[in-house]
Design a protein around this nucleic acid. Structure first.
Lengths: 244, 244
DNA sequence: CGTGATTTTGAGAAGTATCAAGAGGAGTGG
DNA sequence: CCACTCCTCTTGATACTTCTCAAAATCACG
């Protein structure tokens, strides 16, 4: 893992969006205390069980929170985009592995420094707490989805979420860049890779989406997709912040 | 909802067990600030969206954290036993509904009083934080289970959890009292009630368990059940504390 | 232009849901 | 104490979704 000291206020490109966690972005979280690390595709940021001594904020790229079980089953709990914080858990050790989905970088802030900052900066403090809260709320939604929805509903939910979180909300038709590969989507949604692929195909055939390339989705019928996504939920709040 | 002012240190019967959250039990959490409320079967403690002004600790009986979606799908996120805390979420409103599974009672402590206490009692403070942390860890496990396990593995996991959390760990064969009904189990595990019932029958036929009554399970082959339960996980830590 | 990884497609099997009916239990009133 | 009723739980038959295994197609990259 390469290291780069961040100089002042540059380097941060918060993606914007209706998320109060953005209060933490650019100007607030990364300041002279923080250090930016670069990661190659697949590289590990923190491993499950590592001592939890830092908080992280995504600067660039996409990251994932993963747990792999003894017998190889794999579950992804969150994808992090620029501006998202992770490593928020108050415990002594990380609970999940955080890996780079593609090449990217993270700002790391030591917990000690963070604690100090929380004490002297009420906005920062409440934002971090709110982040933890919403991680729980998101887990609730995620679990309901995994436990109770069909493959098509799950994928619709996923695409809707990515669209809402992505930094280019104005385009028509809305375009979602799938940075992660199919296996990651499957492990996030509790499906197999084949089912994910078939569901993409099915949505394409029904005219809901177009797939100009494997990793790019054009949402042709956003309302339809949203209806599918929200079939079993109400007013989901997409959370840019999670924990790990 | 009936009200009873608690007098001093009586009334609490922590069930014991290997859970550090018990540091909060009897002597710590409920003290002169707290008030005990009684609840009838099915009665609501807090509803989703209510202002989150209190923390709660189960004194007697069993409670559940529920979310029901627009179209009637229902997901249960936790069952709370005596000594468990809920309502821990830092946000302004409760995220889930908490209901009494059977007749029971809860000690309520206002958040204001709790905050004050957290400031002057470091043990209490860290215990509450640890509780929130483990709620997240439990959600991770729960989600992996719901997303990746078979019906039999889920039920084995559930029974193992209840046995570990129950207050009578010494009996042979281990006996689990199912206070909740089948629908609750189904909604906790992401299954249908019929599948839960069939899986019970199947386990009975295989000699893993006995069902002297509908709501009482004797675990005849604990090791076998544990093997099933842990098939896709490692060393689960059963958590007496969750959030809502 | 190969070569390996990723994704898609296909066929069949397995597991769970659904719909429907029956059995068991608890409470009530005669 | 026994019927009656309601509710929960179990069982059965079938349909459907998703998984599994296998192979083909596409993509990424040297």
């Amino acid at each position: 893992m390469t290291l780069a000291i961040q100089n002042g206020d540059t380097a941060f490109r918060p993606t914007g969006g209706p998320f109060s966690m953005n209060e933490l972005s650019s100007s607030r979280f990364p300041h002279s205390d923080s250090v930016v690390f670069n990661f190659a595709t697949g590289e590990e940021v923190v491993g499950e069980g590592d001592p939890a001594d830092h908080f992280y904020m995504v600067v660039k790229g996409m990251f994932r929170a993963v747990k792999v079980t003894r017998d190889g089953r794999r579950q992804i709990f969150a994808f992090y985009l620029p501006g998202d914080m992770c490593g928020l858990e108050p415990g002594a050790r990380y609970d999940l592995t955080i890996e780079a989905v593609n090449a990217g970088s993270m700002a790391a802030l030591s917990r000690v420094a963070c604690r100090a900052r929380m004490n002297r900066d009420p906005v920062f403090n409440s934002a971090v707490f709110e982040g933890a809260t919403r991680a729980l709320a998101l887990a609730v939604d995620h679990m309901t989805m995994v436990g109770r929805s069909s493959a098509e509903e799950r994928l619709a939910w996923f695409l809707t979420m990515l669209r809402d979180r992505s930094s280019a909300p104005g385009r028509h038709p809305p375009v979602v860049e799938l940075v992660m590969q199919r296996q990651d989507i499957a492990d996030y949604l509790g499906l197999t890779i084949e089912t994910v692929s078939r569901t993409f195909t099915h949505m394409k055939e029904r005219g809901l989406i177009a797939l100009p390339t494997t990793r790019r989705v054009e949402i042709l019928k956003p309302e339809h997709l949203e209806r599918l996504a929200a079939a079993d939920r109400d007013a989901p709040v997409w959370d840019r912040t999670s924990y790990a």
